[in-house]
Amino acid sequence: MEYSEILKEIETEYKNFSNIPSSEDIMTKEPEPIFLKHPWKYQIRYYYGRSIRAIRHIPVIGDFLVFCNHLRKRGLKA
């Protein structure tokens, strides 16, 4: 059987589907997008992350960041 014949067979069989609800009838809405609505938030997170990564190897700043992280973790635990 040729590939084109398979497609023809599918088209013929497809016509029998007329009595079944269309795709739209059974479609439940997927949840609304949340994060796409405020891309700026992720831009800030991205550039903040990169900036920290860029400066953390500088000795004094690196130590200060480690200290800040330590305080943050203590704060979270409290």
């Binding site: 949840p31 997008p33 949340i34 994060f35 796409l36 992720y42 997170r45 991205y46 992350g49």
Partner: peptide, 17 residues
């Protein structure tokens, strides 16, 4: 990232970046 919106913020973010 659009595939992970609205199911997971972390997946969305990691795909975006």
């Amino acid at each position: 990232p659009k595939f992970f919106d609205p199911y997971s913020e972390n997946h969305y973010y990691s795909c975006m970046v």
